[in-house]
Design a protein around this nucleic acid. Structure first.
Length: 848
RNA sequence: GCCCGCGUGGUGAAAUGGUAGACACUGGGGACUUAAAAUCCCUUGGCCGUAGGGCCGUGCCGGUUCGAGUCCGGCCGCGGGCACCA
């Protein structure tokens, strides 16, 4: 072989690894264990660059930890339930299971050539009955432990297709297929009581010190702990038997400036009025328009309707406040009623201006008397402001203190009760869809809602389903719904809702420790392998998936499926940036966007000459078709080039925009490494060189810096140092033995990134066994110490000179040398030195 | 709308508060070659200067500091999430 040929090298070494069984995870009490996990993929059918980036990062960690002596668990599986399979069924008439398993086979075949150190014997898909049956068993256990309940909740309803829509299927307030405006409609749904753990999920974030701060902050804000007060406003006249309107506020310090009340359209008072007042009914109907997503609700135009009712102000009884129905008030949070304070809340101010409601202030900035204008006065909570004859008796104080004082003052007079509330809502898991884990319960006319017997699990999805009409195929299946009541044995109806796919991904990490166990988990295996030491995935999962997993681990502990040590299942988390790409679109006859794959676009045009609209780079997603196929890169340059390339340039936490150029440059570099190893292998045995000491120092330094880079997820910097070391080695005139030893070190350091090439180089250098199984190199500390250091000298903060001094020179001597430096003397031009700062080993700053 | 990030040469980027641009890509110049490809060498933030060298420069405005890409405050732009996309 006279040139670098990955198509020959790579299959050869993958076969060698398989033959030696090097990636099978084996519990070994004599070694520390390490569990590295990348977020498992949805089996779309093709791997994309985001997958390559994610799994290569995990592989670098797994391979490095293995070389450092750990028993490593590095598994792979498939997050296989979800809507795309049903869409494929509708569009192409395929069976969702067949489609999904074919996609898994295709993607596995694309992943294997990457040379990932995965224990494939542990692979499973969440749509395997073997897996979801265990999930059903845990659902039943959770029911028994009071973690599951049913209640009415709103969904997006397409009134034409008569079906529930996912938020993604609501586009500009309309159903994606029917194009008809969607409505919010209530259905009885299944819920997990995640709110039982609100306080704990929040408090435990402090212990997740190896998670990114931003993720912990996002989760904390999502859980949203607030301290406020629940208080009653006396109704001027009772409605529907209610004499008071109860509302919750986190800003009772602004109570004096309340000028109206706003209640949710679903509030009991609004409902009572709607029964007799057609205008109220029409308004509440109007409020039901649009989707359920918070973004849709929060950005919708604020609408209100005056009910004509009013309440008395609890502290200033001579003041009355009108009650409005507002589409921006959420029934799910607090009591579904708020007081409006336009003086100190911008949204309330906009609402007050629109409906000509009064605006007053509860406080103003010190020295000012009136702040009513087009902007609400909302100073930071720690800014001191002047309260206007405030009820608490406090005047000049901060909002933070005034809130506390208000709560105390009102509690003392029985006007309200201080309360801690969380924004977090219970987890609605019901989906009116086919391709998900069936909820294992039966509805019996005599016994009510009854869990299925565990011996009847799994409750399997029927295979003979049709997608020719919208809606849930389970509902219209001729026989599947009919079941015997597990309790009385009588005729009963099977639940046709399936579980949210987030349930599937909330415990797969535990299943990987014993994927074939007859129970959901195996106590000994879970005890050995849990927790996940390093979890790696996209930052887009920072809240939902990770929060649900943290809850589910606690639920699994409560139901006896996980030990207490595993209630925080992920010790360390790394959130990689996304791979982004430009989006190419044209418009169909109705003006709706049609997306095009990058491979179908050349210089801004389709093959038929149509010009495409180029939209700014965004997360690669199937729906926008801005995806690139890594298989093309692997076919042209080999897996090692693809692996090196996705690690090399961008820091892993940052988004990287995929561009076609660059892979070739990586291939050239790997070719140089290969050629260098051939040259060194062919050196005569007895050659004596002059650079042995420098080479040994360079190897030690490279080993230290690359180990550190990998350990801190700075893969791009580790690769920069690999370039450095390779260049040094390529130019060096070292003795044969030292050159070969240096090249072996290079092979070891490259092994996590480019394992195939590393094996080839290792073998050429006469390394023993597989480099994949060689112990990670440890540098000699003596070779890492420098004896001189170059110190820049700044004059008034600008770099003007530099001096080279022994590393151990005292600060006093450095000062003298600096002041004697001729550039320093020239720049000072006789000015006296006011101050001299010497930072040992770093810098000297002369202040004149 | 709310929460969280990010912003440095032509490009990807580096820089425990301490020499801004390491390491690469691209471009330019050269060597080798009949020629090209490949390979190797030099060069590559902007402006001024023949040169020694100087000035400017990390999205914008302000602040803290001997010293700010880095810390603080306020903007602008872009991205992620917002509970039924996964």
């Amino acid at each position: 072989m006279s040139r670098y040929e990955p198509s020959v090298i790579e299959p050869k070494w993958r076969e060698a690894w398989d033959k030696a069984g090097v990636f099978a995870a084996k519990a070994d009490p004599t070694r520390p264990k390490y569990y590295v996990l990348e977020m498992f993929p949805y089996p779309s059918g093709r791997i994309h660059m985001g997958h390559v980036r994610n799994y290569t990062m995990g592989d670098v960690v797994a391979r490095t930890k293995a070389a450092q002596g750990h028993a490593v668990l590095h598994p792979m599986g498939w997050d296989a339930f979800g809507m795309p399979a049903e869409n494929a069924a509708m569009e192409r008439g395929v069976n969702p299971a067949d489609w999904t398993y074919q996609n898994i086979a295709d993607m596995r075949a694309q992943m294997k050539p990457l040379g990932l150190s995965i224990d494939w014997s542990r692979e499973f898909a969440t749509c395997d009955a073997e897996y979801y049956g265990k999930q059903q068993a845990m659902f039943i256990d959770m029911m028994a432990h009071g973690l599951v309940y049913r209640k009415a909740a709103v969904v997006n309803w397409d009134p034409v297709d008569m079906t529930v829509l996912a938020n993604e299927q609501v586009i500009d307030g309309r159903g994606w297929r029917s194009g008809s405006p969607v409505e919010r409609r209530e259905l009885t749904q299944w819920f997990f009581k995640i709110t039982d753990y609100s306080a704990e999920l929040l408090a435990a974030l402090d212990g997740l010190t190896d998670w990114p701060d931003k993720v912990r902050l996002m989760q904390a804000n999502w859980i949203g702990k607030s301290r406020g007060i629940e208080m009653d406003f006396p109704m001027a006249a009772p409605v529907a038997g209610q004499t008071v309107l109860t509302c919750y506020s986190t800003r009772p310090d602004t109570l004096r400036a309340a000028t109206f009340m706003a209640i949710a359209p679903e509030h009991p008072i609004a409902r009572a009025l709607a029964e007799t007042d057609p205008a109220v009914a029409a308004f509440c109907e109007e409020c039901r328009r649009g989707g359920t997503s918070e973004a849709a609700i929060e950005t919708a135009e604020k609408l209100g309707l005056d009910t004509g009712l009013s309440v008395c102000h609890p502290i200033y009884p001579d003041q009355t406040l009108p009650i409005w129905i507002g589409n921006f008030v959420l029934m799910e949070y607090g009591t579904g009623a708020v007081f409006g304070c336009p003086g100190h809340d911008q949204r309330d101010l906009d609402f007050a201006r629109k409906y000509h409601l009064p605006v007053v202030n509860a406080f103003h900035l010190p020295g000012e008397t009136n702040s009513i204008g087009t902007e609400a006065l909302v100073p930071a909570k720690d800014v001191t402001v002047s309260y206007d004859s405030h009820f608490t008796g406090l005047t000049l104080t901060t909002a933070h203190d005034a809130i506390e004082a208000s709560i105390d003052w009102m509690e003392a007079r029985g006007l309200g009760k201080g309360q801690v509330k969380y924004r977090l809502r219970d987890w609605g898991i019901s989906r009116q869809r086919y391709w998900g884990c069936p909820i294992p319960v039966v509805h019996c006319a005599a016994c009510g809602v009854v869990p299925e017997r565990k011996e009847n699990l799994p409750v399997r999805l029927p295979v003979d389903v049709t997608f020719d009409v919208p809606g849930n195929p389970l509902d219209r299946h001729p026989t599947w719904r009919h079941a015997a009541c597990p309790h009385c044995g009588g005729d009963a109806r099977r639940e046709t809702d399936t579980m949210d796919t987030f349930v599937d991904s909330s415990w797969y990490y535990a299943r990987f420790t014993a994927p074939h166990a007859t129970e959901p988990t195996d106590a000994a295996e879970v005890d050995y392998w849990m927790n996940v030491d390093q979890y790696i995935g996209g930052v887009e999962h920072a809240i939902l998936h990770l929060l649900y997993s943290r809850f589910f681990a606690r639920a699994m502990h409560k139901t006896g499926h996980l030990p207490v040590k595993a209630i925080e299942p992920f010790n360390a988390l790394f959130t990689q940036g996304m791979v982004t790409h430009e989006i190419y679109q044209t418009r169909d006859g109705a003006g709706r966007p049609v997306y095009h794959l990058p491979e179908d676009v050349t210089d801004g045009h389709l093959a038929d000459g149509t010009a495409v609209e180029v939209i700014a780079s965004a997360k690669m997603s199937k729906s926008k078709k801005n995806v690139v196929d890594p298989m093309n890169i692997i076919a042209a340059f080999g897996a090692d080039t693809a692996r090196w390339f996705v690690l090399s340039d961008s820091p892993p936490e940052r988004d990287v925009e995929w561009t076609a150029s660059g892979a070739e440059a990586t291939f050239k570099h790997l070719s140089r490494v290969w050629a260098l190893s051939v040259r060194i292998a062919e050196m005569p045995d007895g050659h004596i060189g002059t650079d042995d000491i420098a080479l040994n120092r360079a190897a030690a330094r490279a080993t230290a810096e690359i180990s550190q880079g990998i350990n801190s997820f700075a893969f791009n910097k580790a690769i920069a140092r690999l370039y450095d070391f390779t260049n040094t080695l390529g130019r060096a005139n070292g003795s044969t033995a030292v050159m070969r030893a240096s090249m072996r070190t290079l092979a070891q350091l490259m092994q996590p990134m480019t394992p195939h090439l590393a094996e080839e180089v290792w073998a050429a250098m006469g390394g023993a066994g597989l480099v994949t199984q060689a112990a990670w190199p440890v540098p000699d500390p003596a070779l890492l110490v420098d004896d001189t250091v170059t110190l820049p000298i700044q004059i008034n903060g600008k770099r003007r000179a530099e001096i080279s001094v022994p590393t151990d020179m005292s600060a006093a001597e450095v000062e003298m040398l600096a002041l004697a430096n001729e550039d320093v003397i020239r720049f000072l031009a006789g000015q006296p030195v006011k101050k001299l700062i010497v930072v040992p080993g770093r810098i000297i700053n002369v202040v004149a």
